[in-house]
Design a protein around this nucleic acid. Structure first.
Lengths: 219, 219
DNA sequence: TTTGCAACAATTGTATACAATGTATCCCGC
DNA sequence: GCGGGATACATTGTATACAATTGTTGCAAA
């Protein structure tokens, strides 16, 4: 069991994890030296990891000024949602066209656990299961190019939507169930529509709570 | 006028250029040491450049076995086309919604030069102008996230479609003109449809000539 | 107090050096 | 002649060292 992956990859995953679970907050500086000390490696793998994350949009690198966790502007969030809505639609359509039994079984499993977590799971658990559902749905389309683009978009949006917290958990999983049902039926149109709406709903929910939070902060 | 960009970026552009114009062919190995000698820099910027290109899908890195120019399988090409078709459609729709006069003027300019080159331009010139048209069209949508995803997809498909050569040049630019006209009219539906078809047409043209070439090679 | 600037500190960018891994070559016994 | 394995070579992965750039602090002059 040798360590088969390059350190850069491992380090990248670690940093990605810290960003996605909020230990590293948007706007925070990512100093190479500090990270390399913390992770016990030299600066080179850290640099390479940051470079990779920047290509995914999770990290922003300004030449000669270092890396920071991406702090998405409202405009960028809107753009992300616009694109992701379309792609989740396409993806669901393709998934419905294939409706591969093995993958459907996996999705059902995730759905079951997701419903359970929506009742009494931690926020972290919900977030993980949500990612799992969308990841498996992405696999179901059998389009690797699409899957990878969507993974990137999801990670970037999840940074933002995470703020929705548990509030929308029940609706989230009801919508997931709807998409899955359409996929199982092979109903491409419905699957596409529901998947696209699912993204839009999450976005508007976020917009509302965020606007409310902003008002509160303005007091 | 200092050199403001990091060497990694410069090196990346150089390698990208060599891939896109065919000096580096799909499947070819990209040995770090050789590239660093050729470009007169150390291996570090080369590594970082290759890493960046691999994130764009232009280069494939196998752990501890080095980098090669991506050699797309027919399946991957189909996936790329599937996604690109949809996104070019969305992009054209958004461009039509905005129809910004300044950008339209730029597009007209590119279109004029493209038409000229379709008559009597080099293949290299045509390729460059084609990229320019699509790049400007991407800007016209005013969705940066979308633009960047599309740039990546375009580069990867152009690696393949380049083989179409001058054969389709006239049709290409007629279709470009159609899309632009719809954008100017603000006709979102038509713009989306024509842009999507443009990609599909290029893909089927490629499939035909490629199949013919394969048959020929099989003799 | 504020402005300008100079020295310094922090940090990134690049090069070189070394370690680990993968690949090819050669030799030997059969 | 032909597998099998040891050895040498090529290449990537990581660490360290140095150069270049940016940001900051202290201090003096207006």
């Amino acid at each position: 069991m040798k360590d088969r992956d390059s350190l850069a990859k491992v380090v990248g995953e670690k940093i990605r994890g810290r960003i996605l679970d909020g230990r590293l907050k948007p706007g925070e500086r990512l100093v190479e030296d500090r990270l390399s000390l913390e992770l016990g490696v030299s600066r080179v793998p850290v640099r390479e990891a940051l470079l990779g994350l920047s290509r995914e949009g999770l990290v922003r690198i300004e030449p000669r000024r270092g890396a920071t966790v991406t702090d998405a502007t409202p405009e960028t969030v809107a753009e992300l949602v616009e694109v992701r809505t379309l792609l989740e639609g396409l993806n669901a359509r393709l998934a419905a066209r294939r409706h591969d039994p093995a993958i459907v079984a996996e999705l059902r499993d995730t759905l079951r656990r997701g419903n359970a977590a929506a009742k009494n799971g931690t926020a972290e658990e919900l977030s993980r299961l949500n990612a799992e559902f969308h990841e498996r749905l992405a696999v179901a389309s059998r389009n690797i190019v699409l899957s990878e683009i969507m993974r990137g978009l999801r990670e970037r949006t999840s940074l933002v939507f995470m703020l929705n917290g548990r509030a929308r958990a029940r609706e989230d999983w009801q919508e997931h169930a709807g998409v899955l049902a359409a996929v199982i039926d092979g109903d491409e149109e419905l699957a596409a529509l529901l998947a696209a709406r699912h993204v839009e709903n999450a976005a508007t929910a976020f917009a509302k709570t965020h606007a409310a939070a902003a008002d509160k902060a303005a007091d």
